[in-house]
Design a protein around this nucleic acid. Structure first.
Length: 1028
RNA sequence: GCCUCGGUGGCGGAAUUGGUAGACGCGCCGGAUUCAAAAUCCGGUUCUAACGAGUGCGGGUUCGAUUCCCGCCCGAGGUACCA
């Protein structure tokens, strides 16, 4: 009986589906355990081998926990709103819902083939109205809440209104917009409704605000920073401008401190916590207010070093700072405006990437030092960011390197306020061991005391106060897209109104076109049935808008992170139509026990999800402040891309009538080792000891191969080369000559050659890196006539490890592996590849190892005559192998060290095969151990052993230490720490007895060669070390 | 620049509190079986002829360091002039 994995796997996948083997119940006497994967966006490319890595790991853990007697919740779903489907809709007109459905079906098919133990009855899709009903519901809750700093939690907006009615807003300690006007209770009560609504909007946890965005007029959309390259859009290369837009924002900043504090309560990877900590960016310091001479305006700055206030020698404003135009003197106006224009052209990325260039302009205005009353010149400079702090800094060049560089560059004075410190070369950044001098009342004080006193004095004269600043900014929540959750919002006289929760969901309307409207409105502006009737409480035709009972609906949609910020809770009861989940469900499941996903979500999804969880906790909706107790980041599986090397030429040519650059008769590709030889030669010359001038001449900005040609033509460096290198050079020159002959007829003078690395699809390449030339030629029109320079009659590709991506043609899908080797082989192999958290390259070569193991495992149970397991008593060796395996595997699973447990299985099977073990007692236990990793073969063998129930809840074998007790040990005998030979000794021997035996041993005498040992270290049961 | 994680055979990696460096697998080499091949099985495989050396480099602590400490170098990912 052979191991027919295809048949076995299909059989058990069907069995699990039909019997709902992995369905989790919301009430159970068993202890709960919730294992969660980050749900995928169903892209058109389908799953590649990188996706299942984390899913396999979580599946192993979930299955292990079932064996351990837990009621396990292990759900899966889809983050199904997203840009690619929308883009596809724009191109083809196909509704994103259809695209999404197709992709989901393909994902499901692929996932099913790998044998995951998901409870599919709980599947969620963020783009389903049944689901986004609750996304909209949470949005309404946020709108109806404000953050009370006194109770340190979100409260219903009605409690704020009550406070306003009684006391006005001066006693309220709330998180709000910056520009809040103060009012009394009388004033509040006198305001009209619209005014009151406007004010409340400044306190709500989700609010409308004018936000500066990257607007691309040509695309009619807002772009993220990384969608902009060199100031133009990545797609299409259209110009991008900074523009203010009214958008929904989420007041995540209200939770900054709690998001920071509670990181200590979760078991998440430290690097991930660090990046959240940095992202939140808490800094403690003071705000200080400087008067501007000759103006009523003041400049407020935030500083972490108020102790250095006497070291201020200038101030710098961000070029965008609103004060700049007001205070700039007529003489400086031209210079300042030119500077502002120049910086506006640079993208935010560009400005930030270029750290070395110091630039700025003097406004001509002066501020007044709050203590000395000295005038301080006010500059603008783009190293100050408008979006952080107040967009202005007090510059202390002696204590801050950027201020120092700026002062040096513009020749501004650098007063020294540090005792005994030399600042002639650079700023003095250390603060802990430094004493302040030349600073009036702060002189002679160390940093901490000076800090406190400075803040105290600033407060006394009304020029500042202690302040904590966060880098974390409120999150923009509007997107000008179609394929996202619509807002449950309509507008009455421009003021947003929430639709009552009982009318949800507000379903996404149909549109003719998925592009922005001609007037620049978001795609929903194309919808004709998109107005809210407050009488019938229904979405109605736009023509019915009467601004009395029927009003326009919001045209923006929600961002991608909305639906993913609470899905883990919705899994607890995904089909509940009346509530986001029932109290019983959330009380039973509480929170996620284990969450596995990629680290790329560190500051996006994982921060927003924590924010929403805390909000829902404040509202009493969820019982836990944090949604996931433990989190593991699985590493990325990288692909091994294949490259072919195209020969391009460098040269001069006259532009012909067709204004085309002459091309080679046939595109020419050189095999890897030839490319490598040329490349190495080039690098060799570049790295040899030649002068800078020579180097420049060699490189000459023309592509390196011109440099090689110049060497051959006898100008420079020829003497650097040995015979071998001269041969390489000669072959390069002959290639160059061929190209020259071909192109000269077309009027081009070829100086040198360039080689371009082109991705070739990895499926055209075999295990020895040989390219299937025919397949490559047929791949694309442009390769049809390609010619190849071979090595040993083969075209060998270059290989490089890169992120797996469609555009790099290095994607390997799990499908063919499942067909050729089976899902169990894939699961074992992915785990065997290396530590879960580490990123590692995919290489199919090793899969035969995992597959071979399964075959060997199979043969331990089954031979040509069928099952060979017997009820014989296990031998001592059998039990020893079994129990050391139980111990190791259990430890490994608990530590998520799945790679080592696969080795352990291999060792166990090798040993038991050698022992010719047929004992049921041992083999039944072994197959349970293997079952989380390779569930299909485990079910089949379990069944063959006579069990009619699924193996999935069979109790995990118990480890018994008694089987591992040893009576003797093979001691390593070391000399000066180096192991030289081994000696089998009884473990009963005392230190003295061991020393006696070892010292009289002939090999010891040999090693010592007559010397007397200085010292003998004996650690019983471990090691013997002789020093001498 | 800063933060984080890494650097061990031809390759993926193992060595969990400092105690035999290279488990396990791939690949490679040799052998058995076979008319032959596939499959399977057995043996070998860090370097070195050997003495020995050896976990990115240089120091240190220790009887003993891949592991701990100090100073560097290199790679990957993240972040971005954060006042």
């Amino acid at each position: 009986m052979n191991y027919d994995f295809n048949e076995i796997e299909a059989k058990w996948q069907k069995y699990w589906a039909e019997n709902q083997t992995f369905k989790a119940e919301n009430n159970s006497d068993k202890e709960k355990f919730y294992v969660l994967d980050m749900f995928p966006y169903p892209s058109g490319a389908g799953l590649h081998v990188g996706h299942p890595l984390g899913y396999i790991a979580s599946d192993i853990y979930a299955r292990y926990k079932r064996h351990k007697g837990f009621n396990v919740l292990h759900p899966m779903g889809y983050d199904s709103f997203g840009l690619p489907a929308e883009q596809y809709a724009i191109q083809t007109g196909q509704h994103p819902a259809i695209t999404t459905e197709t992709n989901i079906n393909r994902y499901r098919e692929q996932l099913d083939k790998i044998g995951f133990s998901f409870d599919w009855s709980r599947e969620v899709r963020t783009s389903n109205p049944d689901y986004y009903k609750w996304t909209q519901w949470i949005f309404i809750q946020l709108f109806n809440s404000w953050y009370n700093n006194d109770s340190n939690k979100a409260e219903d907006i009605s409690t704020l209104v009550a406070l306003f009615e009684k006391e006005g807003n001066t006693t309220v300690n709330a998180v709000s917009d910056e520009d809040i006007i103060a009012f009394t209770a009388e004033e509040w009560n006198a305001f009209d409704t619209k005014k009151q609504q406007e004010i409340l909007l400044q306190y709500r946890l989700t609010y409308l605000a004018d936000t500066e965005v990257n607007w691309c007029p040509a695309l009619g959309t807002v772009l993220a920073n990384d969608e902009i390259v060199n100031g133009v859009s990545e797609r299409g290369g259209h110009p991008v401008i900074r523009k203010k837009m009214t958008q929904w924002s989420m007041r995540i900043s209200a939770y900054a401190q709690r998001l920071l504090d509670d990181l200590t309560t979760v078991d998440w990877p430290q690097p991930l916590k660090d990046s959240q900590t940095n992202w939140i960016g808490r800094s403690q310091g003071a705000s200080a207010v400087f008067n501007v001479n000759g103006h009523d305006e003041v400049i407020e700055v935030f500083t972490t070093r108020p102790d250095t206030i006497f070291g201020v020698s200038f101030m710098t404003l961000a070029p965008e700072h609103e004060l700049v135009s007001k205070i700039t003197t007529p003489e400086q106006k031209a210079e300042v405006e030119a500077y502002i224009e120049a910086t506006a052209k640079r993208s935010e990325r560009e400005r930030m990437a270029d750290v070395k260039t110091i630039s700025g302009a003097f406004t001509g205005a002066y501020a007044e030092h709050p203590f000395t009353k000295e005038p301080i010149p006010i500059w603008i400079g783009d190293y100050v960011l408008a979006g952080y702090g107040t967009g202005a800094v007090m510059a202390v060049p002696c204590g801050d390197q950027r201020d120092y560089d700026f002062a040096k560059h513009f020749d501004i004075s650098i007063p020294n306020i540090f005792e005994g410190v030399d600042i002639s070369e650079e700023a003095h950044v250390d603060k802990d061991k430094t004493v302040i001098v030349n600073s009036d009342f702060l002189s002679g004080l160390p940093y901490k005391k000076a800090m406190k006193l400075a803040i105290y004095e600033l407060e006394k004269i009304g020029h500042g106060k202690g302040k904590i600043n966060y880098r974390l900014r409120d999150a923009v929540f509007s997107r000008q897209r179609y394929w996202g959750e619509p807002f449950p919002v309509y507008y009455v006289d421009g003021m947003p109104q929430m639709i009552d929760a009982k009318h949800l969901p507000i379903a996404l309307p149909e549109v003719e076109k998925y592009l922005p409207t001609e007037t620049g409105e978001p795609p929903l502006g194309n919808a004709t049935v998109w107005a809210w009737d407050t009488v019938s409480n229904r979405v109605v035709d736009n023509s019915k808008i009467n601004n009395a009972t029927v009003w326009p609906l919001e045209l923006n949609t929600m961002p991608g992170w909305a639906g993913s910020s609470f899905y883990f809770n919705r899994y607890m009861e995904p089909n509940n139509e009346n509530e986001i989940f029932s109290k019983e469900a959330i009380d039973y499941w509480q929170d996620v026990d284990l969450y596995i996903g990629g680290s790329e979500h560190a500051t996006g999804h994982l921060l927003y999800a924590r924010f929403w969880q805390k909000f829902l906790f404040d509202k009493g909706v969820v019982p836990k402040n944090e949604f996931a107790k433990k989190l593991i980041n699985q590493g990325m599986i990288t692909g091994t891309s294949a490259f072919v090397y195209r020969v391009d030429f460098e040269g001069s040519y006259s532009i012909s009538k067709e204004s085309n650059r002459p091309v080679l008769k046939q595109p020419l590709y050189i095999s890897y080792s030839l490319f490598k030889k040329f490349d190495d030669l080039y690098k060799y010359i570049l790295n040899s000891k030649i002068s800078l001038e020579e180097k420049n001449e060699f490189v000459n900005g023309n592509g390196y191969t011109k440099g090689l040609a110049s060497v051959a033509e006898g100008t420079v460096f020829y003497e650097l080369l040995d015979e071998e290198k001269k041969d390489v050079l000669a072959s390069f020159m002959s290639l160059l000559e061929d190209v020259r002959v071909d192109l000269r007829s077309k009027g081009a003078d070829v100086i040198g050659l360039k080689f371009s690395s082109i991705h070739a699809d990895v499926s055209f390449v075999n295990a020895s890196d040989e390219l299937d030339i025919e397949a490559f030629k047929n791949w694309r029109e442009e390769y049809k006539d390609a010619e190849f320079i071979l090595e040993d009659d083969k075209y060998i590709v270059g290989r490089e490890v890169e992120k797996m991506s469609k555009s790099k043609y290095n994607v390997v899908s799990p499908d063919s592996i499942c067909v050729d080797y089976g899902a169990d082989s894939l699961r074992l192999y992915e785990m065997f590849l290396g530590p879960l958290e580490q990123s590692k390259p995919w290489n199919t070569a090793g899969i035969t190892g995992a597959h071979g193991f399964l075959k060997k495992l199979w043969r331990l149970y089954v031979d040509d005559n069928g099952v060979k397991v017997t009820d014989t008593e296990p031998s001592k060796d059998n039990l020893k192998t079994l129990h050391k395996t139980i111990k190791k595997v259990e430890e490994d699973i608990e530590n998520f060290s799945f790679n080592t447990s696969v080795s352990t299985f291999m060792i166990a099977v090798n040993e038991l095969s050698a022992q010719k073990c047929t004992s049921r007692e041992v083999l039944e236990a072994l197959i349970i151990l293997v079952s989380p990793y390779a569930p299909h073969i485990a079910e089949e063998l379990w069944n063959k052993l006579g069990h009619s129930e699924s193996i999935s809840t069979a109790p995990f074998p118990k480890f018994e230490a008694s089987h591992l007790v040893e009576s003797s040990k093979e001691y390593p005998v070391s000399f000066n720490g180096k192991m030289r030979f081994k000696l089998e000794l009884s473990l009963d021997l005392s230190k003295e007895e061991i020393e006696k035996v070892v010292m009289s041993h002939e090999k010891t005498q040999q090693q010592l060669a007559g010397r007397a040992p200085k010292k003998v270290i004996i650690v019983p049961g471990k090691i013997i070390n002789i020093v001498g």
